[in-house]
Nucleic acid binder design. Structure first.
Length: 469
RNA sequence: GGUCCCAUCGUCUAGAGGCCUAGGACGUAGCCCUCUCAAGGCUAAAACACGGGUUCGAAUCCCGUUGGGACCGCCA
């Protein structure tokens, strides 16, 4: 019998939760949920100069927005310094690690030199055999890598990957200030937290042999590894700010739904036959590591946008109102304390959701429903408002003011009669009317708009155009 | 430079030696629907990087070439 699956997402708080990190988190989360295992959030903040509280908050905020809930943590490595220290001492005592008195400047110089000579910038191991401390220097601690043989990483996605130990150098596991480094504490933590599967970005594959050697030195069982392919920008280099928004929360602000981003991210590197749309439940049911691809994927904002429109269209108007409200406030369409009748606004949103790709678009389209005074676009007026169409609008006004109900069905019937009386096509009346009541040449079906707006406001807008023209 | 990884339409991908005349999705173009815009439906253009093997048969297996990426820190 196999022990319970335990996985973790271990971001370093040196920036916001970004697209790549979010996908790593998602895959870990899905793997845990699929296997009824445990998902752990661990903050890797040993680099104190670059880690901040704000970024920890930002990462948590991003995880919460995406709905990636964790079962343990967030653990913080800075809370666990004593644990690492004891393991360093153990390695030191067992002669698997040693003090290194080289200064960062010296190391940097040697590295530069090696690179210039076209040699691998590998630590030369000069402190390895040192018997006495070097006075006046505070040492770092290095791990003693085996210098012969090979280390094999058995990866769930890549298969067996071999590294010549000769290529690996004695890396620093504890800085001279006493803080441990990544390649060391990641192992200690994964062991301590009984992680069964390490699912992380491809960029860590080269670190894995080093980590495996630490496992061995500590005499611990090695977890399963799964290295995910990278996410690239449109120019096929590592996704970065140059390629546009990379932070998860930036997508929230641009009016994306979390399920759209999640659905997009999961298909970057993972597939299930021809299926494109997945609910969260479906993903949990269907996710597996076998179907993760090996090659890097280019991030494609167009497809994300398509998914977003799909999910907006699939949402109920009631939910969309809740989601769009902050955007209405931000766009200055309503105030924080503005109360809107939920039934009415739902009806309005129902007419717009299939033509909105983001919540920002939805908010802006809602403008002419919510605001009392609308602005008529200059071009629209020029094209559709003239003596002839004003005449039509007068007839429309007459017709509408005589109507009791304002349901789109009834309106449509009445308009059919009107246009046959006028002997024109519907579009000849509908477009001027659309411009008069929405200010634009584009809107949901005109009868739906009238119905949402109601008789009183429709007549007011009509009068304004008829009188001022 | 060294090490490691990767390689199917522009992009995400299906493809487990014959089911491939290479399928789906985004995007693009056209048509249908239509009061505008969408949504929806239909159609089209669009790919196995190249060269060698293995095999009766290769997108699929092997080798090489080329191209891309990652890592080589007292960052993670």
């Amino acid at each position: 019998m196999s022990s319970k699956v335990r996985v973790r997402f271990a971001p370093s708080p040196t920036g916001h939760l970004h697209i790549g990190g979010a996908r790593t988190a998602l895959f870990n989360w899905l793997f845990a949920r699929h296997n009824k295992g445990v998902f752990i959030l661990r903050i890797e903040d040993t680099d104190r100069s670059r880690s901040t509280e704000e970024y920890i908050e930002a990462i948590i905020e991003g995880m919460k927005w995406l709905g990636l809930d964790w079962d343990e943590g967030p653990y913080r490595q800075t809370d666990r310094l004593e644990i690492y220290k004891s393991y360093v001492n153990k390695l030191l005592k067992e002669d698997n690690a040693y003090y290194c008195y080289c200064s960062p400047e010296e190391l940097e110089e040697r590295r530069r030199l090696a690179l210039a000579q076209g040699k691998p910038p590998k630590y030369d191991g000069r402190c390895r055999g040192l018997k006495e401390p070097v006075p006046g220097r505070i040492p770092a601690v290095r791990f003693k890598m085996p210098q012969v043989g090979i280390t094999v990483v058995d990866d769930l996605i890549r298969g067996k990957v071999s590294f010549d130990n000769e290529q690996l150098d004695d890396f620093i596991i504890m800085r001279s200030d006493g803080t441990p480094t990544y390649n060391f504490c990641v192992v200690v933590d994964d062991v301590d937290m009984r992680i069964t599967h390490v699912i992380r970005g491809d960029d860590h594959l080269n670190n894995t042999p080093k980590q495996i050697q630490i496992y061995r030195a500590l005499n611990y069982e090695i977890p399963k590894f799964a290295h995910l392919p990278m996410i690239l920008g449109s120019d096929k280099t590592r996704l970065s700010k140059r390629h546009g928004a990379t932070s998860v929360m930036a997508y929230k602000e641009m009016g994306y739904l979390p399920e759209a981003l999640l659905n997009y991210l999961v298909r970057l590197g993972w597939s299930y036959k021809d299926q494109e749309i997945f609910s969260k439940e479906e993903l949990i049911e269907k996710f597996n590591i076998e179907n993760i691809g090996k090659s890097a994927a280019v991030f494609n904002p167009e497809k994300l946008l398509w998914l977003n429109s799909h999910y907006i269209n699939a949402s109920t108007p009631e939910r969309l109102y809740e989601l769009v409200r902050p955007f209405l406030i931000k766009e200055g369409i309503i105030k924080e304390d503005t109360q809107i009748d939920i039934q009415w606004v739902s009806k309005a949103i129902a007419t717009l959701k299939e033509r909105s790709r983001t919540l920002v678009e939805l908010a802006n389209s809602l403008r002419y429903y919510i605001l009392e005074d609308i602005e008529i676009e200059q071009e629209a007026r020029q094209k559709f408002i003239n003596e002839k169409t004003i005449g039509y609008l007068r007839r429309v006004r007459e017709l509408l003011s005589s109507m009791d109900g304002f349901e789109s069905k009834a309106l449509e019937e009445a308009f059919k009669k009107l246009i046959s009386e006028l002997g024109v096509k519907l579009s000849e009346v509908a477009q001027p009317l659309r411009v008069a009541i929405t200010g634009k040449t584009v809107s949901p079906p005109i009868f739906d708009v009238l119905s949402v707006l109601g008789k009183e406001r429709t007549l007011r807008r009509l009068d304004r155009v008829i009188k001022t023209s």
